[in-house]
Amino acid sequence: MAFDYEKYLRPGKLPHIWCPGCGHGIVMKGLIRAMDTLKLDMKNTAIVSGIGCASRLPGYIDCCTLHTAHGRAAAFATGVKMAKPEMNVILCGGDGDGTAIGGNHFIHACRRNIDMTYIIMNNYIYGMTGGQFSPCTPTGHKASTTPYGNPDPGFDIAKLAIGAGATFVARGTAFHANQIDKLIVEAIQHKGFSVVEILDDCPTTYGRRNKYKSVIEMMNRLKEVAVPVKAAEKMTAEQLVGKVLTGVLYKEESKPEYTAEYAKVIERAKAAK
């Protein structure tokens, strides 16, 4: 049978606002399949987002949703999780929202290792506001604010998350649609802060400025650059130039989870009276 996505969507919301060929829809489908696999209770699941194209995602899914200030998804989600530790909290947003405006909140959520899942849709640009370059735009690539090429080196979100202390970091692409839900399932099941970076395509503001003739060319680029972690082990450093590793990149089980630690603080404070 065809998968019944509409069961999880708010009625009357489709067609969504994303441009033709935008990968955000593929990621949303992956998230819905992951929620279905885990049989998440919709009343006990919160999706929190900031501002941007990718952050429009919670508006379509019929569970507890929160569309917050720009970059502040992690801050609001931390509040939700602290108030209701039993709730499944999923964050979603784009690369600009997560690593520029919300960069501070992002690294500190990673550091605390609070049990949430952050899905970052990295399309290398600020799509909604007109194609300004983001911290993830690769060096030399063009955006509306860098018409002669971006001089900045781009962020590697996965490395940033590992460095900041996230305990589960995975990467997928919008082309490898089959893999997205599996990564998200593993991320939600992980106890601790989990980051899933999905490399995405933005044909409207990024593609046309960087000589991608069509959505298909952008999708083929994702297909070419992605190398699964296991395959990369057998490849030489020269073969890996310009490639991006996909799959589960980092997993750590030993680090204590924040809400559990905070509950202990409450117990200690009560005992001290």
Binding site: M1, A2, Y5, H24, G25, I26, F175, N178
Partner: peptide, 14 residues
């Protein structure tokens, strides 16, 4: 069906 970003394709099998 997996890659359609717009929820526009359904492959209905038995």
């Amino acid at each position: 069906e997996l890659r359609c970003p717009d929820f526009a394709i359904k492959v209905i099998t038995e």
